[in-house]
Design a protein around this nucleic acid. Structure first.
Length: 570
RNA sequence: CGGGGCGUAGCGCAGCUCGGUAGCGCGCCUGCUUUGGGAGCAGGAUGUCGCAGGUUCAAAUCCUGUCGCCCCGACCA
């Protein structure tokens, strides 16, 4: 392609609205433009990258035995009502009515639609297993879209759904997808890690997320420094405390703590370590107000809490409710003498003696409280976030913490959807049986954006070759006949062998071309200049290293082919 | 949903406090020169100042409303 024939509006200046590297560079390199919050147009260059990622996904999905189909973006409410998700999905589901006043929504995911299809068309165990996927636009009306393609409202996703005769078959399907994902992200040139994950709104029994490791990631993951354990912190288990504090209980005392409410303030004021403090957090569930106890240096894991309580919504109680329930302003809630409110506690509390807690009285705390003697914990459970230094929940080692971008997620769904939607088939005995499902997503745009987060420098993007919009950026540095002729000849030679070349045929100065090329980030730049040509040489430069080879034009093709075949080219 | 901020030329911004002529840089157009890392000189074009209403002789500027966008928060008392 010639630059003059492509819409590549590069920006010299930083776009004001962009925060993360990938967002900034995608805008600057002329790959995306915003249409509305979280909604983007993919410009020709950006679309080429998207298509590259899609092509890799297609190849690997097909190789894993999945078959492609395409479902609609809009779907009728009745399907969502069947599974209960019309109500359960909340505001993220963008709803609208058609001219007949019938309810529809834009699909944020497609379990309902695919399950509806399969229940109609699959009757016999002979038709299973089946794995169908699509690459299609999704819409989720996110609370706060951000970071360009990282968290859009409209985005391209590959979603696959497997249907099996039984649990064992579903395991096989799941593993195939897991393996395919490993290949896909490896081919995309990403450094990533699969971690155990929570199943969230999709539901199901178990899942893994594929996390691209990056500081800007929105997810926190923990992994063991020995062994293979890795999990999203939402999900990571924490082992019960090894031993109980050896000290013997001291009498409960009430102490004045004027204006001292945060953990930092209380521990500083009383000169105690945060491990000796027990925080009392009041949570509002749809049913009730509940008190949750965690150690002063720990964080409540709300997902674990929701599961323990069997509720889907939970939020910290508003200050006025805290006051009404405890009789004290926020900051002084405590389990001692707390009436009419159930108390659950993180398991670490069990190992503590002589702790500091709020006294449900303004400017007052208790010291030397004891859970066995002074208050009634209804249940102890793992309710906190894992953190660096915790022992690995399986095997040896300690946990470390890293940030990740979730680019893929695989779920074992079990019979959740087949049951609510009655997707059944007849087994060999003629028994009606529920299909066992799995579902598997990949964020296509997010994958491209993560590649930028991991591969860039001050000048711009450095695409991994397999997903680069072009392999070679061809840069003639003058408009002279000799240079143009040499450029054209190189372009033809390379293009004829299937190498993708972006030919910067603009009448621009060398500096402008170099800067745009660095910004756009093709892995190689082929530079044809007057001086070099006079010596019969052109320059082949690696974007990543800046390393340049000067060679005669007739050696360029062989060189490029060698360079490109070193990498997993699609 | 709460808090904060911003909407002025294609992009980045100033002007608003204290009402009166709409400005700067980049980009764009023309010409000449220049030509291996975002050129120089000269000339030029471009604005419903987000939108609607109000105050005023007069509004980018003040007031009200509204829409859009961005940031932080919506989890640790």
């Amino acid at each position: 392609m010639r630059t003059s024939q492509m819409l590549i509006p590069t920006l010299r200046e930083e776009p004001g609205e962009a925060e993360t590297v990938s967002h900034r560079l995608l805008l600057r390199a002329g790959m995306i433009r915003k249409v509305a919050a979280g909604i983007y147009t993919y410009l020709p260059l950006g679309l080429r990258v998207i298509r590259k990622v899609e092509a890799i996904i297609r190849e690997e999905m097909n190789r894993a035995g999945a078959q492609e189909l395409l479902m609609p973006i809009a779907s009728p409410a009745e399907l969502w009502r069947e599974t209960g998700r019309w109500d359960f999905y909340g505001k993220e589901l963008l709803r609208f009515k058609d001219r007949h006043e019938r309810d529809f929504c834009l699909g944020p995911t497609h379990e309902e639609v695919i399950t509806d299809l399969i229940r109609r068309e699959v009757r016999s165990y002979r038709q299973l297993p089946l794995n169908c996927y699509q690459i299609q636009t999704k819409f989720r009306d996110e609370i706060r879209p951000r970071f360009g393609l990282m968290r859009g409202r409209e985005f391209i996703m590959k979603d696959a759904y497997s249907f099996d005769r039984d649990e064992a078959g579903a395991q096989v399907s799941y593993q195939k997808m897991y393996d395919a994902y490993q290949r896909i992200f490896t081919r995309c040139g990403l450094t990533f890690r699969a971690v155990e994950a929570d199943t969230g709104l999709i539901g199901g029994t178990s899942s893994h997320e594929f996390m691209v490791l990056a500081e800007t990631g929105e997810e926190t993951i923990v992994y063991a420094d020995e062994g293979a354990y890795a999990a999203n912190v939402e999900r990571a288990e924490v082992l019960p405390p090894a031993e109980t504090a050896a000290e013997s209980p001291r009498p409960l005392r009430k102490v004045p703590t004027p204006g001292v409410r945060t953990v930092e303030e209380v521990t500083a004021f009383l000169k105690i370590p945060p491990q000796q403090l027990v925080k009392t957090l009041l949570y509002q569930t749809p049913k009730e107000l509940i008190a949750v106890l965690v150690r002063g240096d720990h964080e409540v894991n709300e997902i674990k809490l929701k599961k323990l309580l069997g509720v889907v919504e939970i939020e910290l109680a508003a200050p006025d409710k805290v006051r009404a329930a405890t009789g004290a302003p926020v900051g002084f809630a405590g389990p001692v003498g707390l009436r009419g409110i159930r108390i659950v506690a993180d398991q670490s509390i069990k190992a503590l003696r002589n702790v500091v807690v709020g006294a449900n009285e303004a400017d007052t705390h208790y010291v030397d409280a004891d859970w066995e003697r002074d208050f009634a914990v209804e249940r102890f459970a793992d309710l906190r976030n894992a953190r660096a230094g915790d022992p690995s929940p399986v095997g040896q080692g300690q946990l470390r913490v890293a940030r990740g971008i979730e680019v893929g997620h695989v779920f074992m769904l079990g019979a959740k959807y087949s049951q609510s939607m009655k997707a059944t088939f007849l087994d060999p005995q003629g028994q009606e049986t529920l299909a066992v499902m799995g579902c598997y997503g990949i964020g296509v745009g997010r994958t491209a954006a993560s590649a930028i987060e991991q591969n860039h420098d001050a000048k711009g993007i450095i695409w991994p070759a397999p997903i680069a919009p072009f392999h070679i950026h061809l840069l003639p540095l003058s408009q002279s006949a000799a240079v143009t002729e040499a450029t054209r000849s190189l372009y033809d030679t390379l293009t004829q062998t299937g190498i993708e070349v972006l030919w910067d045929d603009r009448d621009e100065r060398a500096g402008v071309k170099f800067n745009d090329a660095d910004l756009i980030g093709a892995p190689y730049q082929l530079i044809v200049g007057e001086k070099g040509l006079a010596q019969g040489l052109v320059e082949l430069k690696q974007r990543k290293t800046g390393e340049a080879a000067r060679l005669p034009p007739n050696q360029v093709l062989a060189h490029v082919q060698a360079l490109l075949s070193n990498r997993p080219i699609s």
